[in-house]
């Protein structure tokens, strides 16, 4: 049932990117199940930061699916006066907590916000979704130091482990490296909604800083796009769109 919904969302992304000739489809598809669950269950009572801002079209598609924006707004993606740019702009809609797009900004923002909420005795949790290439940014590790020092247990870090490092310096033993900063790291299949839900629930119950490593596939859901670097920043042609529609069984 959820797969059917997710395929509809997937197609709305493909269609939008085809029309505007813009969008990071692969990065959006790798976090679609995570976003779906966050929008369905967790965004109301928690504070969500999409640090990997280039996957914005995934977030916009969720906003459209969950009726937070209308069709006209969704399909205005990247047009001059649109509220939905290639990367989210926090001044356009309150749901974009911070403007992101430059890697390594969302987590430091989240850490400061987490500190502020604790200071205010606000019980909300902050869920920060980062891409695995953001782990190459020094600010990510500086932030982990800050989380550890200030004991910010109101922050949940989700890492979209879509192996973007295949083309660069590798992250060997990621879990081991992260274990210095958290003793609760859940490594899950990031495309399995039930696994994601269980992990987030555990994090919300937990009293420590928790990390979820979500193993995902870049471009998940469409064979041609999956794990294909040519599709990192590319829009489908009309012919490709029809082909993908069939593949998604829409």
């Amino acid at each position: 049932m959820e797969n059917k919904k997710l395929n509809l969302i997937r197609f709305s992304i493909l269609e939008n990117c085809h029309l505007t000739k813009e969008g990071h489809i692969g990065s959006a598809f790798s976090i679609l199940e995570i976003l779906f669950l966050i929008f369905k269950k967790y965004i109301k009572n928690n504070f969500f930061i999409l640090s990997k801002g280039h996957a914005s079209i995934g977030m916009y598609a969720m906003m459209y699916y969950f009726k937070q924006i209308n069709k006209k707004t969704f399909f205005s993606f990247c047009k001059l006066d649109s509220k939905l740019g290639g990367h989210p702009d926090s001044t356009k809609l309150p749901i974009f907590s911070f403007s992101t797009g430059s890697l390594g900004h969302g987590l430091p923002n989240a850490v400061g916000y987490a500190y502020a909420l604790r200071q205010k005795k606000d019980k909300k949790r902050i869920i920060c979704l980062v891409g695995d290439q953001e782990l190459m940014e020094g600010t990510t590790w500086e932030s982990l130091h800050a989380i550890d020092n200030y004991k910010l247990h109101n922050l949940i870090l989700i890492i979209d482990r879509n192996k973007s490092d295949f083309r660069s310096i590798k992250f060997h033993n990621l879990k081991k490296k992260l274990s210095v900063f958290s003793n609760k790291i859940y490594e899950i299949n990031g495309h399995n909604i039930s696994s994601i839900d269980k992990a987030i629930k555990k994090c919300l119950k937990g009293k420590n800083f928790n990390i979820i490593i979500a193993n995902t596939v870049k471009g998940y859901g469409i064979k041609t796009i999956a794990n294909n670097p040519a599709w990192h920043h590319r829009a489908p042609t009309a012919q490709e769109l029809m082909k993908f529609k069939k593949e998604l069984k829409i």
Binding site: S97, F98, G104, H105, L107, P108, N109, A110, V111, G112, Y113, A114, Y115, A116, L117, Q119, K120, G138, T139, E142, S143, H145, A146
Partner: peptide, 16 residues
């Protein structure tokens, strides 16, 4: 950690 210090400050600012 100057870069993170500024990002952190932005989080504080967002919270008022």
């Amino acid at each position: 950690m100057e870069q993170t210090m500024l990002g952190f400050g932005s989080g504080l600012s967002k919270a008022g």
